[in-house]
Design a protein around this nucleic acid. Sequence first.
DNA 1: ACACATTCGAGAGCAGTGCTCTTGCATTGG
DNA 2: CCAATGCAAGAGCACTGCTCTCGAATGTGT
Lengths: 229, 229
Amino acid sequence: MSSAAQGARARARIEVTAAIKDEARRQLAAEGAAKLSLRAVARELGMVSSALYRYFPSRDDLLTALIIDAYDSLGEAAEAAHDAVADAAPARRWSAVCEAARVWALGHPHEYALIYGSPVPGYKAPQTTIPAAARVGLLLIRIVRDAHQGQGLTAPPLPAELRAEAERMTTALAPDLPPEVVAALVASWAELYGLIGFELFGQFRRVVEDREPFFRHAVTRLAGGVGLV
Amino acid sequence: MSSAAQGARARARIEVTAAIKDEARRQLAAEGAAKLSLRAVARELGMVSSALYRYFPSRDDLLTALIIDAYDSLGEAAEAAHDAVADAAPARRWSAVCEAARVWALGHPHEYALIYGSPVPGYKAPQTTIPAAARVGLLLIRIVRDAHQGQGLTAPPLPAELRAEAERMTTALAPDLPPEVVAALVASWAELYGLIGFELFGQFRRVVEDREPFFRHAVTRLAGGVGLV
DNA sequence: ACACATTCGAGAGCAGTGCTCTTGCATTGG
DNA sequence: CCAATGCAAGAGCACTGCTCTCGAATGTGT
């Protein structure tokens, strides 16, 4: 039952599985999710399409695997960028994470579209994607929590109608933060992907030309909105 | 050469074209863009698939028509919501537009995905979509411009690296506004769609539960960011 | 009013897709 | 060594977008 040397059979299986994912990722990056074809993957790997179903029961399952990988790849890039400035002020760490997410998205447009664009046809994200999908968000929470412990943060007061929900979110996400800050943080988290998506999907064409400084300024404003200076 | 009564042929043509778009929109709303099939549309209309190519040279052209319609539908909803509170304070008009966009998106998820989600395979939005796509943005600009003429707006100062680009954007979009406000406005515009997209595509699942008040608060914060009170 | 031109629907057909099922071979564990 | 299992292959089904050709209906110019 050890994981290594469990027989040539098992080793071949994980190798083939990896090869399929690699080739699929190649095609995804080259042509986009819509043009990812099981048959083309199989063809490129020198096998017949039906053989592929031994490894992934359906095209959607293959996509799910690629989605998780994409979340992890993005999360890893964000964490690496964060760790490189781990000792800087929280606002700088925040910006580093946001900029890393943008750079990753620009470098992996189709994979970004897969995870933050429109969901595929009748596709329903399985629970397994959740931990990978949460990595960037958790990183932002950590930064804000550190900042709060350092100096205490403030955010605009909550309207009465949001009070209860904000407190629920707070206990679920970061019990040691004020609810106003948590609400602002979650909103900023979503807004960040609005900025990235608009740039990536061409909505800024003929509107914003010099996009990097624009993005930097925008995420700095987002940081300010949750109380980071 | 008059547009009306230009012969039975021409009239039939625009009628069939409309019928195709209607049926396509039905299938789009029901199943999503990925499952929109020319053959299925033709089948439902009692014609053969090849006949459809007399009206739309390709599936992508049909999608383009639907995209423009979707932009217009969203723009119309936003403008109607705005006009209903046209005399209120700018901040209230801003919120009305944002909330109308959200409601439209929740009511037309697949059409929203078509215009603000990932672009389809090798699809490149033709110039023809631009005016329709700009409607909500122009509305927000109008609101902010009105507010500025009323009382003068302020936004956080620009970093030096963004100065030139912000001034370029200002002359292109709203020459009578300060560049800081224009930069904030464009960012807020993109961020709005981050909020909507996250809710629509399920990213808020198990994070934000009571989403309407959350959204209201978030767009109020966005309004504050461009100087609206 | 007649002849020419254009437009259109239908059908066949091509190349491709996801997916299923059966068949026979190779590897594996007892 | 032999039975059980894992696996690749092939054929096949029901689709897809798209092209081409062929008559028929509908226009238009003389």
